[in-house]
Amino acid sequence: MVTESFLPSLNGVTTSVRHVLEQLAARGHEAIVITPSAESPRRYAGFAVHEVPAIGYRSFQVGMPVPQVQQLLARFAPDVIHAASPFLLGTAALAAGRRLGIATVAIYQTDVARYARRNRLRALETAAWNVVRRVHEGADLTLAPSTAALADLRRLGLTRLALWGRGVDVHG
């Protein structure tokens, strides 16, 4: 589980990641969490949480190997890498997955481009869509939260796409 956001930050990405980790644990799967350094808990749902300092991946060019991320993934050798709302760290993990021959699923979630459009930041919107395309091209499969998001990704020329709705917490 490679996530751009984790506890103590509370947002939609963190919430999804927590639920997925809990469901993995409930089924007896093994996992690790890789996240940017932000004083996250050391463990969650029984799984180790590894923090990667920003210097460890921000200074690298997109597509270049990020040793710490690649080492963590090579050592754990998962069946699949789940990249939650991938940006800098997620992109590094997707590239590492490709290099290591590990299957990858990317979750499209942040919607930077629509945010830019809403706020009339046209140049930023174009740049944001280009980033989204480049990031998600690197995944075996990208999951989008709505048919509208799916259509956006398809318009970018991305092909390995599917719908994945988020959960509703019925217990409040």
């Binding site: 469901q23 021959g101 075996d140 988020r166 959960g167």
Partner: peptide, 28 residues
Amino acid sequence: GRRRVLSRTWESVCIDLFARYEEVIAAR
């Protein structure tokens, strides 16, 4: 309303997700 969202519990949503995992693992 409750019946409508019952099928969207995190448990059922994650079952969908893990099925996607299996697909990409098999393809790989």
